[in-house]
Simulated assay, not measured.
Amino acid sequence: MNALPHLLVVEDDPELRLMVARLLRQNGFEVSVAGEAREATALLRQRRVDLIVLDRMLPGESGLDLCKRIRRDSAVPIVMLTALGEEVDRVVGLELGADDYVTKPFGSRELIARIRAVLRRGAGARPDELRPPRALVFDGWRLDPATRQLRDPDGALVVLTGAEFDLLHVFCRNAGQVLTRDQLLDLTRGRSASPFDRSIDVLISRLRRKLRREAGQTDLICTVRGGGYLFAGTVAA
């Protein structure tokens, strides 16, 4: 029997931490909890974690700083949980590597739905993609859907979050085609709408940084004025 997904809840409010942990356990997850960044770091070193529910405002090292530090060498999915709902706050969290963002107060079903959606995105192929996946090569880069890994032209592994991998995979499968933001949201998240109107832009910005090897090199992901985005790489299976 498959093990339950293991979630780490990092929240400094004891009552909210207990409530979220209880909710997640009731919905079929194994849960560990931490009240601040240092405790969370220790737990991450001790065992595998499938997803982190991370409060933005923590005592000491903030949730944003912890997210940034985790992203240096890990693609573990992160759902930010915060009372700050302005667009600039959402964008900062996404820029630093968060996969999704839920603002307080939140509905229990919304939180569970977003966590499950992020876990599905990181689990591999969607149900309509059951044929054996083939590695895709573009401009010397190699994207492997089977292992969900990206390697640069020198063969070095490039760490991608689940959302970044899914977006790059969609671009590779639709190279040379202009894709709107709504199409990209639908193809990567299985939904045509999102409360984060800049989430795709932020993910593309992150991908561009990771795909840009030399200063002045032309971006593989091009912005089409009034249209969306186009992947300019030549892709071969």
Rank of each mutant, 00 (worst) to 15 (best):
Q149M: 14
H169W: 14
T180A: 04
D12Y: 02
G93R: 13
D139P: 11
S32N: 05
R134W: 11
G227M: 03
I70L: 12
P77R: 07
A135F: 02
L187D: 10
E86A: 13
L150Y: 14
P5L: 01
V49L: 07
D197Y: 01
L220A: 11
F231E: 11
N2T: 15
D139Y: 11
R148Q: 15
R69V: 07
L58A: 09
G124P: 10
E110R: 11
S108I: 05
R69M: 07
G122I: 08
R116I: 09
A237V: 09
V88K: 15
T180P: 00
G122F: 03
P145Q: 15
L51V: 05
L23G: 08
V137M: 13
G122K: 05
E110H: 02
L16V: 14
W141A: 00
D13P: 12
E87Q: 15
L211S: 04
R121S: 03
L23F: 07
L81T: 10
T82D: 09
G28T: 07
L54P: 01
S205E: 02
A175C: 04
V202M: 10
E61N: 06
R22W: 04
R114E: 06
E164V: 01
L44Q: 10
G233W: 05
M57R: 10
L207I: 00
D55T: 04
A113I: 08
I78L: 13
R47K: 10
L136V: 07
R126L: 09
E30D: 09
V158A: 13
A83W: 10
A123L: 07
V170R: 02
R212H: 13
E214C: 07
F196D: 15
D55E: 00
